[in-house]
């Protein structure tokens, strides 16, 4: 690093400069997180009049609840499928973009738009497209003899949230993949071509290994996204139904806490989710430290 080091006398200016960031973190992250931790060891009566300390009883109850384990399984499958689709489609698009128009940005800009769409809006959009009576996709599918009704069919409902969630994430992945692909020197690909490797083999033996670190980074980001950022999509499309078929963990936190008013149980679920994200982040950091340099 050749950057010039700027020094401040005392702590006044630095403290002032980090204060806004600290305040935001405190108010929107540390405080709610500590509240969740606090709530998770309490039990409240249905009218909110009496609260008592119950230790780990909430944890025991939630972790033994088949409905919770079921939701965990749904979430795991959901996040893996979303990550796989979002990564696969993004890589395909990025490879094509890299191949056809190195450097042209119009196409790239278009593809980033979905990322700027709020989850709830994305949800409404896809809800609209797939609506059994007014949706254009549902109509087209019915033309092909497929009866689409995600309000009744659990598999279709699951598919709907997967599509909506993956669609929103594709653009983010695309940008990273495209940057990754463009950072591979062209002469490497040319050397491989001269060395007798066809396009598929080049992709598998040269390009994929070289964008491996990017792919791993995106995999973790996508799983975290599917775990935590998809509430709006579920809420706007399926509402967790039919039954609990699309009740992923973040949605269950909301349902149990704000609809069933089981604040203790809901807080426990939040704590578990926090643990998951911390674990994923740690894996990420360890891996990046070890593998990012060639």
């Amino acid at each position: 690093m050749q950057t010039k080091r700027v020094t401040f006398g005392g702590y006044g200016v630095p403290a002032l400069l980090v204060a806004p960031q600290l305040a935001v973190t405190l108010v929107f992250f540390i405080w709610p997180a500590s509240q969740a931790l606090y709530q998770s060891v309490l039990q409240q009566d249905p009218f909110g009049l009496k609260t008592e300390f119950v230790g780990l009883a909430n944890f025991r109850r939630v972790l033994a609840d088949p409905a919770y384990l079921d939701s965990f399984a749904i979430t795991a499958v959901f996040s893996l499928v979303v990550a796989a689709i979002a990564l696969g489609v993004a890589l395909l698009l990025a490879a094509m973009a890299d191949w056809v128009i190195r450097g042209a940005t119009a196409y790239t800009t278009l593809l980033i738009w979905p990322y700027a769409v709020a989850p709830a809006i994305a949800g409404v959009l896809w809800w609209f497209l797939f609506h059994p009576t007014i949706g254009i996709f549902a109509y087209v599918l019915s033309r092909f003899g497929i009866a689409w009704n995600h309000l009744l069919d659990a598999r279709q409902a699951f598919l709907l949230i997967v599509i909506a969630a993956a669609w929103k994430q594709v653009s983010y992945n695309f940008v990273f993949f495209l940057a990754g692909l463009q950072s591979i020197p062209r002469s490497l690909i040319e050397a491989a071509a001269i060395d007798g490797a066809g396009p598929v083999r080049r992709f598998r033996t040269i390009i994929l290994p070289l964008i491996g670190p990017t792919t791993f980074f995106l995999l973790v980001v996508n799983i975290v996204y599917a775990f935590f950022d998809t509430f709006g999509i579920v809420h706007a499309t399926t509402g967790g139904g039919p039954g609990t078929a699309t009740t992923i963990l973040v949605y269950k936190v909301f349902r149990d806490g704000f609809e069933a008013l089981d604040l203790g149980g809901s807080a426990v679920q939040s704590v578990v989710l926090m643990a998951v994200v911390v674990a994923l982040t740690l894996v990420q950091f360890r891996f990046i430290e070890r593998r990012v340099h060639y």
């Binding site: 020197p185 002469s187 490497l188 040319e190 050397a191 491989a192 290994p209 070289l210 491996g212 060639y294």
Partner: peptide
């Protein structure tokens, strides 16, 4: 072909 930047496969 031998390239100016050698184009060795880094991985």
């Amino acid at each position: 072909m031998v390239f100016q930047n050698y184009a060795l496969y880094p991985h």
